[in-house]
Design a protein around this nucleic acid. Structure first.
Lengths: 217, 217
DNA sequence: GTCTATATTCAGATAGAC
DNA sequence: GTCTATCTGAATATAGAC
């Protein structure tokens, strides 16, 4: 199978345009034109624009989530039942997203859009989609953070995971702005630098004091 | 002047709809209908949809930024030329946003949308607008963080401020989901709780180690 | 400053032949 | 599975009377 199917052509074009112009601002017409496929093909293969959006997101998120869980497994294996280093868990959570390669179409751009959506859109349908895509990973990491940070209430962990996601999202967004003049090698190096900065910041945040402690003081 | 002008009616309606459905998803038609004004009034007063968006954002951001600078002035005055406590600077930066009252139309919702936009939209026009609205405040706080965290390179401060903004944005977004069943009193209390959680997390993050330190180790 | 009416463009989605 | 042609609605924006 050398041939890129119509479905793939559509997803590749959509991903590139979503990353570049945003989800809402990208029309199916633009996707169709860019992919060089027939007008009716999108509805035939994906049913609706939302269907296409989800398909594109899932295609990128699947390997990223798999890598996150693989790294977390490694960290847990190394700990041999002892304590988990918070930095290592943070890194397993963040690194696969930051490193998601631009590849053909811009995986990072798609994640940037997706994470931005998590902020702007609060409707139930959208939350369901996010849960389908990230639910399992979030549960696994919530448990891991609970182990890495004994004594921190689960509710606090829940909030801090959201703070982490937000910080990561804006980090990726800002980086995408600073990126235009870089070649692939510079891109790679910048990824690692952003990752180190994020891990430092987030690890420090996770170790911060808690409201409860202050109330008891 | 008891009368709400047409301009105000439009801005109030737009703000409510922007907060509820998002900027892109809100049509001028919906704004016009909700405000009960004439079809051409929006273009007459604001020139375009973008003009309306900016007017709404500026109206909310102005008092918030003023309050941020007032709080920062207080913190700096208290320090009397000595060291600045990072937590106090963080709180001055975050509190006015978290506390922005829903009022008539949902100030917080508008900020949520705006911050989401900061992530999803990377086009130059949009960045210019953000700079017009937040540039001055960001410069003042960059300087304050530099004083509060001596030894931390300016570039690191720059990145950590972005991480803070992202964490704050997702915190506000998640809170807006958990909010529907609360009355005004519960709303107020939750604001303060989220604020404490954010300040704890962000202060911890600011104190985190740096890439440079690790490279020199 | 405000109104009605409308121009113009483009969106998402479908029908039905092949 | 893919094509052409088109429906239906909605978007932003403007013209020109009052």
């Amino acid at each position: 199978m050398e041939e890129r199917t119509t479905k793939d052509k559509i997803m590749d074009a959509a991903e590139r345009l979503f990353a570049e112009h945003g989800l809402a601002a990208t029309s199916l017409r633009a996707v169709i034109k860019s992919a060089g496929v027939n007008t009716a093909a999108v509805h035939y293969h994906f049913g609706s624009k939302e269907g296409l959006v989800e398909a594109v997101l899932v295609r990128r998120a699947t390997p990223v989530n798999k890598e996150r869980l693989r790294l977390l497994d490694e960290v847990e294996a190394k700990s041999e039942g002892g304590s988990l280093p918070p930095e290592a868990v943070v890194e397993a959570f963040v690194a696969p997203v930051v490193r998601a390669k631009a590849g053909s179409g811009g995986g990072r751009g798609v994640f940037r859009q997706l994470l931005g959506r998590a902020i702007t859109e609060a409707d139930p349908e959208h939350r369901e989609m996010m849960h389908r895509i990230f639910g399992e990973v979030l549960e696994r990491f919530t448990a891991a953070f609970a182990r890495a940070l004994p004594g921190l209430p689960v509710e606090e962990i829940y909030w801090r995971m959201h703070f982490m996601v937000g910080a990561m999202a804006l980090g990726i967004a800002v980086r995408s702005i600073h990126l235009e003049s870089k070649d692939e090698r510079g891109d790679r190096l910048d990824s690692e630098l952003l990752l180190r900065r994020l891990v430092d910041f987030l690890s420090g945040g996770l170790r911060g004091g808690t409201v409860a402690e202050k109330e008891n003081a």
